[in-house]
Design a protein around this nucleic acid. Structure first.
Lengths: 139, 139
DNA sequence: TCCTAACTTGGACTTTGTCCAAGTCAACAC
DNA sequence: GTGTTGACTTGGACAAAGTCCAAGTTAGGA
């Protein structure tokens, strides 16, 4: 994650302890935390960090393209640090678990010109839904 | 839309004027209203209808499978009455316009077994993003 | 070491949605 | 038609998620 911090410094960011902690919390694979979860984990490392700063920092990371915002349900947005490799999401309807997945092919190609209504289409987000092994097994 | 009302009566619904108005507001193609928008339009026809009733009715319609809940952004959920023909959504990043679209092929097939993590995958929701003709033209 | 613009803070505020007790009414039985 | 009853509706309080702002703090260059 220190390469992320370096990239941010290169873009003129001031490296405060708060930003460092938010970046650390978001490190890892298959990480999809809500803003409140990020705040809770950040507080464990830096007790005085405020919710406003967490929201600010997440928003900035999203603007810079370092973190993706994922809105899989109508509830809180989730933040996905795996922004540098294109991927989609697989969501368990039972327990809410989320995995990053990589379907083959380009989903944009499945949308014929006649279905584009004159739009310039640039991206496709796919949410696969199902039950994870634990939830499939039963209650 | 009266066939919808008939279906609901067949399922034991009491046909109140409030439910009738909500069903009427949701009639049409490419309709993707938020709960508040549904409420605003319902009030225009039935001034005393309450927010709670609109939320209740929308929730019931979703449970019955007559209306789809769409969460394209992290903001308010939208309600899509076109629940009886499978489709995906195309969203303008500029103005927020939404169209129903029909990509070809089955999106589930693009997800190889090795990317399913043992999940039983049952559905895929796709949100295409881009700019509509008006927003492409310029500001 | 000092200075200053950038950053952080806590709290007030907004938006979106849920819950509840009390009042109302659609549909059925007669 | 009339009465009955349980399902439905209402308004307001509440909760969750997120935004905004004035005042205080600080990273990093001079």
């Amino acid at each position: 994650m220190s390469d992320l911090l370096e990239r941010l410094r290169g873009r003129g960011w001031r490296l405060t302890s708060q930003r460092r902690v938010v970046a650390e919390v978001l490190d890892g694979d298959h990480v999809h935390l809500t803003a409140d979860e990020v705040h809770a984990r950040a507080v464990a490392r830096l007790p005085e960090i405020s919710r406003a700063t967490v929201y600010n920092t997440l928003g900035e990371l999203v603007c810079l393209g370092e973190v993706l915002e994922v809105a899989t349900d109508g509830r809180a947005k989730r933040y996905d640090p795996n922004a540098h490799r294109a991927h989609q999401h697989l969501l368990c309807s039972g327990c809410g678990a989320i995995r990053d997945v990589h379907p083959h092919g380009d989903p944009l190609e499945a949308l014929p010109a006649g279905e584009r209504f004159g739009f310039t289409v640039t991206a496709a987000e796919i949410t696969y839904r199902g039950l994870c092994p634990d939830c499939t097994a039963g209650p």
